[in-house]
Design a protein around this nucleic acid. Structure first.
Lengths: 162, 162
DNA sequence: TCAAGATTGATGCAGGTGCATTCAGTGGGG
DNA sequence: CCCCACTGAATGCACCTGCATCAATCTTGA
């Protein structure tokens, strides 16, 4: 239980942190330079747009995005402030609410995917063969803190987390 | 240039972000629960303790840790406030300074490595064979934003970044 | 030698995040 | 039926981060 990690594991850990940080920063930077809001907004909009009715309970959004409750709450505030989503009353549970994506929200999500996918290609796709990408997935999945996610059977967009 | 990423690349990207976030959070949480300061402090102390003279220019620390300048500046503030490091005058360049690790700093770094290495083992080492860890390293290195780092030929401790 | 430009480091401000708490509403057991 | 424990969501506070900017010093080159 208190054993030390192997040098190999430690090296992998260091790479994981450094590389992800760099690549994520680069992608965020690309988005920002293209005049778009941060990735978290995209992820939220994507989740909302994927919901069959275009709306979700904050709790669900929270679970999808692996975000703490207060963080989701404030993210929704910002989306609403920008007219990208709207809070709608939840009749079946008066504590709760629904968050519904607006038309503007859907448009922004689509436009962002253009810039976002280009960034992914630039910083990840172009550096890895598909076969390597699959291997990387497999290895990373093994680290996936037990409680794995179902996660998007859909058209493979979306990031989430943090 | 504007090509879309493959589904494989996108999937890898998503895993990279989500898994790293989870594992990093878990490790930070373990450290915090053991009563230790955040990882960034550890990394800074490690870099300082590795320097032959036990001191570094802030700029160097900044480069080692891939941290923005202001971030390093304030991190040093905190370390100094806690008596883990000290600012020393730099005679050869009066704009600059040296940051020197204190005895307390060295001790904390060592104690933290106990908890930190245990966390690495728990969240990474135990889930990956050494061979897989090596493969993971290889794949991640390929994403390493061109400008690769020399990075610790030493005893393989240390994380840095962000 | 000296002015222009580059480099080192600090800091004010705006915004983001974590934590703990609060408040409203729900639901189950007695 | 009511009380109490629990859940959904918001928020005050402290702290952290990014950005832009500043002041001090160094370097270069005419």
């Amino acid at each position: 239980m208190k054993r030390k990690p192997s040098l190999e594991a430690t090296a992998a850990w260091i790479r994981l942190v450094r590389v992800q940080t760099r690549v994520l920063d680069a992608v965020e930077q690309d988005l920002k330079k293209a005049g778009f809001p941060p990735l978290a907004w995209y992820d939220a909009l994507l989740e909302l747009s994927r919901a069959p009715t275009g709306e979700l309970r904050p709790v669900e959004l929270e679970r999808q995005m692996l975000l703490p409750q207060y963080s989701t709450s404030r993210l929704i505030d910002r989306l609403v402030d920008e007219g990208l989503a709207a809070r709608r009353e939840c009749k079946i549970d008066k504590r709760g609410q629904f968050v519904e994506i607006t038309e503007a929200g859907r448009e922004l999500q689509k436009k962002m995917w253009g810039a976002y996918s280009a960034a992914i290609e630039k910083h990840v796709g172009s550096k890895l063969s598909d076969a390597d990408a699959v291997k990387l997935c497999g290895l990373l999945d093994r680290l996936g803190c037990s409680c794995s996610e179902a996660q998007s059977p859909a058209i493979g967009e979306g990031t989430s987390a943090r």
